[in-house]
């Protein structure tokens, strides 16, 4: 099947098998390997991207379902200048990553969380991240980074 979609602002077209997962379209066809795969049961959130502005687990979306949609991955977050998005910078300041494998998904989930709840409580941040697993950090740095961005920007980014 032929699909067309916008990925990080670029128009893309591809001929795909109906069973191809969005995450594999991104990683293996479009070379966007920033989005990771950590499970096969929709449990870990490593594959989180934005689909028309909403965070989704790209391992549960078929590429054909993204036909006509707009996808933002971690590679598309910081913009052309290459500087860090405020959430990325806050993740670094708060040591919110160690091995970094969960990080792209975690950052994308955080972007969507702040878009929906610009002023979350700590409890809301923790519950909002329930679908994203990190094995390294114990989550505190991640939670603090998100809370700091919410405080300093009112969650206005994107």
């Amino acid at each position: 099947m032929r699909i067309e979609l916008t990925v990080n602002g670029r128009h893309e077209a591809a001929e795909v098998e109906p069973r191809l997962l969005l995450v594999h379209l991104l990683r293996e066809r479009l070379g966007l390997t920033g989005t990771n795969v950590g499970c096969d049961s929709t449990s870990c959130g490593a594959c989180t991207v934005l689909l028309d502005g909403q965070s989704v687990k790209s391992c549960t979306v078929l590429a054909v379902q993204a036909d006509g949609a707009e996808v933002t991955t971690i590679e598309g977050l910081s913009g052309a200048g290459g500087g860090l998005h405020p959430l990325q910078a806050a993740f670094q300041r708060h040591h919110a990553l160690q091995c970094g494998y969960c990080t792209p998904g975690m950052v994308m989930a955080a972007v969507s969380l702040l878009a929906e709840h610009p002023h979350p409580t700590e409890e809301e941040v923790r519950r909002g991240l329930e679908g994203n697993l990190c094995r390294c950090t114990g989550y505190q740095g991640i939670v603090d980074a998100i809370l700091e961005v919410a405080r300093t920007t009112g969650g206005a980014e994107r």
């Binding site: 390997t33 990325q88 990553l97």
Partner: peptide
């Protein structure tokens, strides 16, 4: 961090 945060792992 910068590499890992921007999907360049």
């Amino acid at each position: 961090d910068p590499n890992l945060l921007t999907g360049r792992g």
